[in-house]
């Protein structure tokens, strides 16, 4: 029996379906994220991980089912309304603006609520960004752009972050730095949904892992049980 005193999950997704035009990409996603947790969505290419993130953010144009955030049903809201509830996205393609300087990129997302990191603190976490604050955003290296894409949403005060493959295509040393950043954010109480292909990286930061396949969540593995389930996971991911 469930303890009724346990807090409701910060995010609960139930029967989430989604479409790109005629193409039906999410077929009933179910999962939840508790406050302060880091949860990953694992799965093969095209399984629906990114679509799930985009659906939570409201960017996926057509969706049905239920996405409750902090008790508010968001499945029919616009992205800008969802952002105002305190959800922030770091998209897979990073979305650094070429016509904005590094600093303008950093300052672009408006503050949603109090408690965001100060610019000083962000520059302390990511010293490269300070050095290059006047450069064009897209002149940064891939790793620096990824830092910037994460850094700018930390300023907003949003405590719930959707990070879509932040380590994709980056050098190991940068991956480690992003891993340390995520652990630091977790320590400070941020709640994070992380899409990952690299489950070694995922295992180093996450509490629980959801496996997504063909637009559905097919399994959940607590991080502590990851080793015991490694063969199963390999089969899921087709590694």
């Amino acid at each position: 029996m469930r303890d009724t005193a346990a807090p409701a999950p910060l995010l609960s997704v139930a029967g989430l379906q989604g479409w790109y035009g005629e193409s039906h990409v999410l077929h009933g996603i179910d999962f939840h994220v508790n406050e302060g947790e880091v949860v990953t969505l694992l799965g093969r290419n095209g399984a629906g991980k990114t679509s799930t993130i985009l659906a939570i953010m409201g960017i996926l144009p057509r969706r049905s089912g239920s996405v409750r955030f902090g008790g508010v049903e968001t499945v029919n809201l616009q992205p800008r309304q969802i952002a105002r509830l305190g959800i922030a996205i770091c998209p897979e393609e990073r979305g650094i603006f070429a016509s904005l300087s590094v600093e303008e990129n950093l300052m672009l997302p408006p503050r949603i609520q109090d408690g965001g990191l100060s610019v000083d603190r962000i520059y302390q976490l990511f010293p490269n960004l300070k050095e290059r604050s006047r450069s064009q955003g897209t002149k940064l290296s891939g790793g620096e752009q990824q830092m910037l894409a994460i850094a700018r949403i930390l300023r907003t005060g949003s405590r719930f972050l959707l990070l879509d493959e932040p380590t994709e295509g980056l050098a190991p040393v940068i991956v480690q730095q992003i891993g340390r950043t995520i652990q630091q954010l977790k320590k400070e109480g941020f709640t994070i949904v992380l899409v990952e292909q690299n489950f070694r990286f995922a295992a180093s930061v996450a509490d629980r892992h959801y496996v997504v396949d063909q637009g559905r969540v097919i399994d959940m593995i607590p991080n502590a049980d990851l080793d015991a389930n490694i063969d199963k996971l390999h089969a899921y991911l087709g590694v």
Binding site: M57, I59, R84, I89, F97, L100, I112, T156
Partner: peptide, 24 residues
Amino acid sequence: TRLGAYLRAATENPTLVGAFGINV
């Protein structure tokens, strides 16, 4: 200006700018 940065960003990628909570 800040307002101009919104405008330039929305010219490039209005979807993402909207997802930051800006009324595009």
